[in-house]
Amino acid sequence: MKQSTQKHKSSLFKQEVTLVVDDSLNRLKGKVLAPRKLEAANKALSKLKVVLPK
């Protein structure tokens, strides 16, 4: 299982976080892991009349 580690510091939080890019997590890429949540989001977004600014 390949992993690579990065350190991230956010300008919002005064804390450094270790980000582990994990190959075993990559197997989930492209799958919808919260289908009902996405359906609800799409329903809400379809009703919006406003175009978001670029």
Partner: peptide, 20 residues
Amino acid sequence: MKYEVYDELRTTDDYSIFEF
């Protein structure tokens, strides 16, 4: 912001999924 976060996150190479 002064809030503490969990300091180790696992992620995919495209950052589409995070776990902690």
